[in-house]
Amino acid sequence: MSARLHLSAVLRHLLLIVFCVFTVIPLAYVVSLSFRYFRDIIAGSFVSPLTLSNYADLFQSNFLRLLLNSLVTAAETTVISVLNGALAAYALARFVWPAPWRNGVMGWMLFVRMLPPIIFVGPLYLLARNIGIYNSPLGVMLGHVVIDLPFATLLLLNFFADVPKELEEAAAIDRASNATIFFRVALPITWSGIAATGMLAFVVSWNEFLYALVLTSTPRFRQLRSSSLRNATSSKGSP
């Protein structure tokens, strides 16, 4: 019995280790590439001198500028989505709506969130061209808001629904307005939920590629597509 148990433990660890290796090897390989000279990699030698020159090249290119663009876009998207999402979520969670309205709005937001982003690419592109924000950070940011706003609203809805109603009722008895209740009672209580939502919204915008690709035209993206080594380490391409 104990021998069999022992065997199964060995099998379990073996399975997990095999899969961890499978998961880690591509990442480790790319990291190792980033420290080696191109000629050594092409030669297929596994033991070769290490270098930081790839990183020097990276920072001499406009990588930092691109990084800053990504950060700013993601930050703006997060702020807009979470602010508007919080207002929408609070309204949906607390005010009295006719059931079809409420379910309709929530169902539509879920629906938009689940469809692939390629479906909205055409209209967004034409819209951006027509109102003159094509190829600008503003356009990409608005594109990301399309994805992030329903996402943030739906997440925040759960957090606001968990706020005890009694607290808000107590504030209402003290003649607090709806705005005061929202900013002074509901927001402070759900603060951790809002922070978590903000982080996730940031990551969604940071990882998003298609809208940034479609709503800009500068050749920055072509750098990303070339198979040069640099791109292994700067694999994030944003406006």
């Binding site: 297929g44 590629f209 990303l224 198979s227 791109n231 292994a232 694999s235 994030k236 391409g237």
Partner: peptide
């Protein structure tokens, strides 16, 4: 990881030379 990073990583992994 973002999909772009994964595409770039595996493009290198599958490369005939490197």
């Amino acid at each position: 990881l973002p999909g772009v990073a994964i595409g770039a990583i595996w493009r290198l992994m599958y490369d005939y030379n490197m």
